[in-house]
């Protein structure tokens, strides 16, 4: 305990003495973490959207004209259910379709309350026994010549495209995140190097009077960790706030396009706080060990 409090005191006095450099590296790492956070948010949202899209659109939707009666619709549904490769065919009336939309939009369902008339068509949702057989199944459905069929929505290609794009985004984000982490470590290690340099005489004498390597290293290690941690708190606040603003702005647009909102703020902040703190501390610790390695081997 005495050891730790000594190292802690040393660390803070170092940060204070070297405050310009410390501030600069805190800001640099905050910026890195913030950028990293943006990529993280992007990744999480893309992931969620892809999952949503997959889940919502892994079926073929057959939109029916408003003039078709529910009885006719049910009959058609039964006919389609009898086709080969069809796993299930479910009939949704106009009212059902609206209800489904409302549950999909979740917290934002109130946006649908303002509608004057129900814009959603009655729909038959058809699932194939196997995703691979979907194309064949759609061909079979197309051969049914029923005037009540307004449109057959078949999303496979779009889903494939979205999955591809999300994979690219994910890979890109991961590469960038790794690069940013490395840069941050260099920034910390440079700052610590300057403190180490400023205290070179002191360290030399410490070693002469019998200080262990850990005694010498601990304050610098803590200095790095403190710098990393402060940066993590700052970047969580900044990115969290920015995301909060983004949610306000983007949610209505996203709902219109993707039938889902953004990943909730609490989830993002909670995860970012943990990730940033862990990263900040690791970056700080590794950065400072890196900068001391050469110095302590002598």
């Amino acid at each position: 305990m005495k050891r730790f409090s000594y190292a802690l005191k040393q660390a803070f006095s170092q940060i204070h003495r070297n405050r310009n450099m410390s501030t600069a590296s805190i800001l640099a790492i905050t910026a890195m973490l913030a950028i990293l956070g943006i990529f993280f948010i992007l990744m999480v949202n893309v992931n969620m959207m892809t999952a949503n899209v997959e889940e919502q659109f892994d079926c073929v939707e057959i939109y029916l004209t408003d003039s078709m009666t529910e009885a006719d619709g049910a009959a058609l549904t039964e006919q389609i259910g009898g086709l080969p490769d069809v796993a299930s065919a479910i009939y949704l009336s106009k009212a059902d379709a609206l209800e489904v939309m409302k549950t999909r939009w979740g917290d934002n369902a109130y946006l649908l309350d303002g509608l004057v008339s129900n814009p959603f068509p009655a729909t038959i949702e058809v699932k194939a026994t196997d995703i691979e057989k979907e194309a064949a199944m759609v061909e079979a459905i197309k051969t049914i010549e029923n005037p009540g069929i307004e449109e057959i929505k078949y999303y496979q290609e779009e889903i494939d495209k979205i999955i591809k794009i999300s994979e690219y985004i994910e890979t890109g984000a991961i590469i960038l995140i790794v690069v940013l982490i490395l840069i941050s470590m260099l920034v910390v290690s440079n700052t610590i190097k300057i403190t180490v340099h400023a205290r070179e005489d002191e360290i030399l004498i410490m070693k002469y009077v019998g200080a262990t390597n850990w005694f010498v290293r601990a304050p610098f290690l803590i200095e790095g960790i403190v710098i990393g941690f402060i940066a993590s708190v700052l970047s969580t606040a900044i990115v969290g706030f920015a995301y909060y603003k983004c949610i306000d702005f983007f949610t209505p647009k996203f709902l219109a396009f993707f039938n889902s909102g953004l990943v909730p703020l609490e989830f993002i902040i909670y995860n970012l706080a943990i990730i940033f703190a862990a990263l900040g501390i690791c970056i700080g610790a590794l950065g400072s060990i890196l900068s001391m390695r050469k110095f302590l081997s002598a």
Binding site: D201, L204, I205, K207, Y208, V209, G210, A211, T212, N213, F215
Partner: peptide
């Protein structure tokens, strides 16, 4: 080595 050095006091020409 640190423990060994604690048994030895050292003084230099340039005080340090």
């Amino acid at each position: 080595v640190p423990k060994h050095r604690r048994k030895i006091g050292i003084v230099f020409q340039n005080f340090r």
